[in-house]
Design a protein around this nucleic acid. Sequence first.
DNA 1: TATTAGCACTCGATAAAGTTGAGTGCTAAC
DNA 2: GTTAGCACTCAACTTTATCGAGTGCTAATA
Lengths: 340, 340
Amino acid sequence: MQLDERKKKILQGIIRNYLETGEPVGSRTISKYTDLNLSSATIRNEMADLEELGYIVQPHTSAGRIPSDKGYRFYVDTMMAEKDKEVREMKEMLIEREDKMEALLKQVAKVLAQNTNYATMISAPTMHGNKLKFIQLSRVDKGQILAVIVVEGNIIKNHILNVNEELDDETLLKLNMLLNTQLNGLAIEEITLGLITALKQKAGIHGDIVGEVLDAIAEVIREDENLEIYTSGTNNIFRYPELADQEKASELISTFEEKKALSALVQETLSDENNTGIQVYIGEESPISNMKDCSVVTATYELGEGVKGTIGIIGPKRMDYDKVVDTLKNLMHQLDDYYK
Amino acid sequence: MQLDERKKKILQGIIRNYLETGEPVGSRTISKYTDLNLSSATIRNEMADLEELGYIVQPHTSAGRIPSDKGYRFYVDTMMAEKDKEVREMKEMLIEREDKMEALLKQVAKVLAQNTNYATMISAPTMHGNKLKFIQLSRVDKGQILAVIVVEGNIIKNHILNVNEELDDETLLKLNMLLNTQLNGLAIEEITLGLITALKQKAGIHGDIVGEVLDAIAEVIREDENLEIYTSGTNNIFRYPELADQEKASELISTFEEKKALSALVQETLSDENNTGIQVYIGEESPISNMKDCSVVTATYELGEGVKGTIGIIGPKRMDYDKVVDTLKNLMHQLDDYYK
DNA sequence: TATTAGCACTCGATAAAGTTGAGTGCTAAC
DNA sequence: GTTAGCACTCAACTTTATCGAGTGCTAATA
């Protein structure tokens, strides 16, 4: 049995209606709701077929039908390339520019949550494959050296080193020269053990400090691995009764708080090769088991030169996929423009 | 009518029992629970008195009694200066040192939440009254200058300035010298308009850049005003049925997410003059209206020289005040040791 | 052959009625 | 002052009844 045009229309009607109301959809509703002019009895027959095909399910014997994961998948896959809604409000809100990446990301998460009424997350861009742009050592105190490390994409990391020896200005200058000439322009992966040894040797008696700086750089990478994730709109889950019961809500909220779990989602999204930009995970498809009752829509944004991050929207399975996808697309263009 | 010794014992019994069970406490329970050897009838008489005095209330006619805010207040005020429990586990967890303040604070919030089973928050230390320690301008790119600002307490802020003019190394060095000699050691409040004008004049044609750096410093302060707050254990509120219904949970969770509201709490705590270190807000006493069904215990920590922050524990009114206070005291010692 | 009207049936949701039991206040006796 | 005893209260829970949206199936219709 195949999905003919009429079945598609009915399925679409069921899903649309369910997205709106969150209640199981009965045959009579569809009979009136669609422009097919069929009686409820006919619809019932078709619905029985659709159920057999696995697109819809009955929560209990005498109830209407709700979409199965397969049904949602069908809907998302086939019926989504149309609309072009305005998200002007968002544009305006984003215009309050923020120079700091962190603040910007938080802002994005917030605006997105407000706009969609779903929970949102955004990961800070990882600097995988990125190049060191600048290193600066400064003495801030006796025995304390501040190392500032700038990576392409203007991601800045600070690190304070405690040193025993007193360093005079001249030595510091030399060390700075050395580090910058040797390391700038290198991708983090390119800093090999051989290079490190050579560097230490050149630094002579101050090899220790060079070692510490390199450790700091390594730490920057390590830190980058358990990446920063900002969330917002967590309490939106209470808008959807199917997620709002205590057990589920508690689970979801702790998932949001414990960013580690979310990073699985980020990794999954970033690692996808044939990435068209936007992905939809429905129910069990999600890499996070706690989200089996949710759908997750993710997008990858890029701030030039491989600096990539992920935006995610988490809501009930009956989320408004059209709107969410549009919103994300729009947002990605915004970000592109922003870091032009 | 006054609280005699027996009434105190009964009140204490009621509160203790209620803290444990969360259920209204009846006269028979107290009759058995305490070592007073009184019948339930006598207890009933005493309980009627305690109710009249406002220390306990009946949720409905034929139920046991629960403590009123006044009852909790009495309990907290009088019965809290004794115990000395071990919080060894926490000590161990904290030993995994983190060099970055931010990570440390997050860690503290998390450990605290795990230890107490309440929701926790911690504010990053404000640098009110603090002194500039070090300023460094570096060229990271054509037309891009990185300004690193270090304040006492080793709080580091980065700021990228976009400049039109090309700056050569020598000029940069001069500017660095100028800024450091003129500004280092000054409290942020001491940078007056007069000083700014003088600085710009000295910088000559590069006055603009000095202006921008000062703006950045100003921004550091501004940023400091809407301070960083880290939270953890939000989902612990689901452990307490009296907070876990949808409406309350949703409100509380959005309060936690919207850090602005929490900052009211921080301000309140920090501004309290006769601060003995730990404060308890019961129900309506809290500066955050959404928390009228909670109790909040706050502590002020200090990392030397006026760098102060706030730790807060938010739970139900029937929270285990003894344990929480102990834990906080202990933690404050830890932090003291840490930044000795 | 596809569609539809009709009907008996199912079953969650809601309401109504009944039951239980912890807890109270009051009184009278100790 | 303390306590035993008793009638009373009332939230919580259980049981029963009712309702109605929705179904599957059958037979009639176009």
